Amino acid sequence: MAFDVELAERVRDVLGPRPGLSEKRMFSGLAFLLEGNMICAVTSRGLMLRVGPDAYPAALIQEGVGPFEMRGRAMTGWVLVDPDALADTDALIEWVDLGVRFTATLPAGGSKAR
C-alpha cells in the first residue's frame, strides 16, 4: 500500500528544519525520526504517532484516534490518527508536537522507551 503523500508533505511542513530530524521509508509508509527515534509515520491508514505511555490514555479518547496495532496487538504509547482528524492544520500541529515532545525525551540512537 502507498502512503498518503499529501499528509507526508504536511507533516514535513509542521516539523520544519530541525537538528537530528530524518525520514525513512518503513511500515509501507514514511517515518519521521528525531535522533534515530521514530516520532510518527504516515501510512495509508493515517498517522501512526508515538505519544508515550503517559499521554496514551488521553490520546485514545480523542475522536478519530485508536490504538496502533501490530500483529493484532495494541502497541502502548502509539496511536493511529485517522486522516479526517488531521484535516485541520492546527490539529495536525498539535498531534505532531505531542509526538515530538515525547520523542525528544528519549536517548538518541533509537533506544526503546523505559
Rank of each mutant, 00 (worst) to 15 (best):
E35I: 00
E69Y: 05
S111T: 13
D54V: 15
A55S: 14
L15C: 04
P67Q: 11
T105F: 07
D54I: 13
T76F: 00
L80T: 06
K24I: 02
V100I: 09
L86I: 08
A55L: 14
P57Q: 13
E63C: 00
G36C: 03
D13K: 15
G20W: 01
R18N: 01
P17G: 14
T43H: 05
V42G: 09
P107S: 07
G36I: 11
D90E: 15
L15Q: 03
V14S: 07
G99N: 03
P83A: 02
S28G: 12
E69N: 10
L33F: 03
A104N: 05
G20R: 01
G16W: 02
S44T: 12
A58P: 00
V100W: 02
M1H: 12
V96R: 03
N37R: 10
T76K: 15
L33V: 01
M75G: 00
W95G: 01
Y56R: 08
A59F: 03
D82E: 13
A31N: 01
A113V: 02
L80M: 12
E94F: 00
T103C: 02
G64I: 10
A87E: 15
S22T: 14
R71N: 11
D54E: 14
W78S: 02
V65H: 06
E23V: 14
R12H: 13
P107Y: 04
G77E: 05
E35W: 13
D90W: 05
D13C: 01
P19R: 06
